[in-house]
Deep mutational scan, measured.
Amino acid sequence: CHSECLGNCSQPDDPTKCVACRNFYLDGRCVETCPPPYYHFQDWRCVNFSFCQDLHHKCKNSRRQGCHQYVIHNNKCIPECPSGYTMNSSNLLCTPCLGPCPKVCHLLEGEKTIDSVTSAQELRGCTVINGSLIINIRGGNNLAAELEANLGLIEEISGYLKIRRSYALVSLSFFRKLRLIRGETLEIGNYSFYALDNQNLRQLWDWSKHNLTITQGKLFFHYNPKLCLSEIHKMEEVSGTKGRQERNDIALKTNGDQASCENELLKFSYIRTSFDKILLRWEPYWPPDFRDLLGFMLFYKEAPYQNVTEFDGQDACGSNSWTVVDIDPPLRSNDPKSQNHPGWLMRGLKPWTQYAIFVKTLVTFSDERRTYGAKSDIIYVQTDATNPSVPLDPISVSNSSSQIILKWKPPSDPNGNITHYLVFWERQAEDSELFELDYCLKGLKLPSRTWSPPFESEDSQKHNQSEYEDSAGECCSCPKTDSQILKELEESSFRKTFEDYLHNVVFVPRKT
């Protein structure tokens, strides 16, 4: 048989008469490798580009789960590009990614509803959504962080984005990388972005840091009482949809009607710091009717980097990364020049730590249904340095008659930039024990000054392991946590139920 035959053949030295091919099969003959313009397919066939392209389009058009959109890589027609490569849609070739590779997620039936953290986790790592997304989240724990972890990498949506009755959302900033909504599939009414009845939605994105392009379709905003109209108009300008909307697409009466839409800028007039305090004062603000001013709200939190936005980490279910302080308005003076500047002394802060701070007014709604208010920009203030805590785990070892090696770990709280350490030492008198000992005694162990690591005695271990207080009263049991108490109650309830079950099964009433 021919060298490319495997198993047997019907005619000697003829690659077209093989029972099976050793390498690849091409047009009725066995070959060692697939010549151009053919590609290896499933490690035994040679196919042309049209064959591989037909497989790709067949799966793409069917949208069946589990099928493969075949691509070409290293002269092979394979189910998908290997790690580190992405497909070129024009020629199906796998090309190296520039940075992290995109991950295209194809949605069944063309859309997916995100109504819980669990459903959001199914899209973790996706960068391109081939379909439409509907966000409908009523509640949950730590929602802002969970949504950002699972949806934060999405850069492109081919269909539309719909935010509907998501009472738990305060902001859409968890879509931190969303840059493009194509609108290839539109919501009824030709809408590519749809926001309806979101009672706590206050911000779409921080438009000073976020760009969003909507290729096709219109915007729809109705019944978002805490979303200011200025935020919607800003989205029109940034996304390129200005002029597409009709009169009733953006409701003037049901958007922002319960919001404090600040239209003035508060400026800080005085800032002073110490290692654990920050004193702030800002310019006074009074609405047209000074009785509408209820006070100020001061927001602050630790910020290692200057990239904080107002609604980071917030949701309507209680999660809030900001510390909020309510401040009463100052006494009002008739003389504008003698107006008191409101302020606040922030206490209990960490030394040498940068804080993000902003302040906003708290006002009631005027009778004319106009909203007044003022808010400052987010500023960054760093507390002063102070003395560091003591170095940890000092170790001293003498390696000769004239040297001592000293080692330690950095302090747990540096409280500033540590530039150097101060080492103090003092000579001590020799131990009298060394002169009084009889060095001729056998088995004498000389006193040693070398360091030995501390260890816990058996008594201390027994005390720590004991669940009861000892007789001397030195140790006591740790208080039980809520989960331990709940577990004990469940076990007790189970024992009672099981005992009742045994009584009912074992003891049967005697027939009379």
Rank of each mutant, 00 (worst) to 15 (best):
L107A: 09
L107Q: 05
G110K: 05
T113Q: 15
V117A: 14
Q121L: 12
G125D: 10
V128T: 12
V128A: 08
S132Y: 01
I134P: 00
I135Y: 02
G140C: 15
N142C: 02
E146P: 11
E148Q: 12
N150R: 08
G152W: 10
I163M: 11
R164H: 15
V170A: 12
L180V: 10
L180C: 12
G183C: 03
L186R: 13
L186D: 11
G189Y: 15
G189L: 15
S192P: 03
Y194N: 13
A195H: 03
A195V: 10
Q199H: 04
Q199V: 13
N200L: 09
L201V: 06
Q203K: 12
W207T: 10
N211K: 14
N211E: 10
T215E: 06
Q216N: 03
G217T: 00
H222W: 09
N224V: 01
L229Q: 13
K234P: 02
E236K: 13
E236N: 15
V238G: 12
S239W: 03
S239N: 03
G240R: 10
R244K: 14
N248K: 13
L252T: 10
L252E: 04
T254M: 13
T254L: 11
Q258Y: 15
L266Q: 02
S274E: 10
R281A: 07
W282Q: 00
D292Q: 14
L293K: 06
L294F: 07
F299E: 12
F299S: 02
E302I: 07
E302S: 10
P304H: 10
N307F: 09
T309F: 04
F311A: 15
A316F: 13
A316Y: 06
V325M: 05
D326P: 05
P330S: 06
R332M: 11
S333T: 08
N334T: 14
K337T: 13
H341D: 10
G343V: 02
Q354H: 06
I357T: 13
F358Q: 08
T361Y: 10
T364N: 15
D367Q: 10
R369Y: 14
I379T: 15
I379V: 13
P391Y: 02
L392I: 06
V397H: 13
S398V: 04
N399P: 13
P411H: 02
